[in-house]
Design a protein around this nucleic acid. Structure first.
Lengths: 142, 142
DNA sequence: CCGTTCTTTGGAATTATTCCAATTAAAACT
DNA sequence: AGTTTTAATTGGAATAATTCCAAAGAACGG
């Protein structure tokens, strides 16, 4: 077994489900997201992956990230005009964006609350996704 | 009285509160947002305002929008990488982004639900703002 | 008025992302 | 194994939204 490819089985499975191929690039990008859970930007992922596969291109990183999002292995998150950030936590959760440090933290969302939130939609509206983002200051920073 | 400047009094007040000046550009930009409540992009605002003030620049529109956001007269909303959209509805509300048409609708949020949402934050976290965005399909489009 | 401050302007610069055409790699078929 | 087809990667160019900057203009305070 290799040092990377932490979850290559799950990845391979999901890719297969979508009729897509498993590639070293996709494994490395996914592993990078799993290894450091700091909601990195595409550029940051690119930098991390390049240490292991120097020849990889930024375009490929974007491609891989898009693929992972399509396969439901990763969610895309973004704040204002800042670069889109990527997060492999698939449990329903909100994000807290700390304005002093710029860092992002997952906030667990009780299923019941999520249901309540969805219930405010007028009849007939169907939401495939809800994105909830808090912005504010972290306790330690105050 | 002029044909534009629908709410120039409120605007002038808020600007004064922030120690800023009232200008024709700011009035026109604000009026454009109030006149057509379709969450326009900066470019769209620019196009609308130019019909009344052909010499206005895009940079000024961006400046004015930022000013209006700072004065709590307007909120900025954005979806994925799409251009930021602007909305003069200051009541706590969510947004529904219709993926078939690309249009955006306000969804009223009961105050109690908003309180419940904020209560999921771990102790000490303080959120200045919560942004809730639904994405999905509208009934008529299905 | 006269200096100061705020605002606008146009254009250049930046940043994130997507597009494209060419190459490479993998899978399917024989 | 060899060939065809299909998918993926690559680098560079293109796009799109936004910000930056320096100069010009307008308003305000003494």
């Amino acid at each position: 077994m290799s040092t990377h490819a932490i979850h290559s089985d799950a990845l391979a499975q999901k890719l297969a489900d979508s009729g897509l191929r498993n590639t070293p690039q996709r494994e490395l990008v996914y592993d990078a997201l799993l290894k450091k859970r700091d909601h990195p930007t595409a550029d940051e992922v690119y930098a991390r992956v390049k240490t292991q596969l120097p020849g990889i291109s930024l375009a490929t990183v974007y491609n891989c990230l898009e693929t992972l999002v399509q396969c439901d292995l990763v969610r895309a998150v973004n704040f204002e005009r800042a670069p889109t950030r990527y997060c492999p936590n698939l449990h329903p959760h909100a994000h807290f964006h700390d304005e002093t440090t710029g860092s992002t933290h997952d906030i667990e969302l009780p299923a019941q609350l999520l249901a309540e939130i969805k219930s405010v939609l007028p009849p007939g509206y169907s939401a495939e996704a809800v994105e909830i983002t808090f912005r504010g200051k972290l306790p330690s920073a105050g």
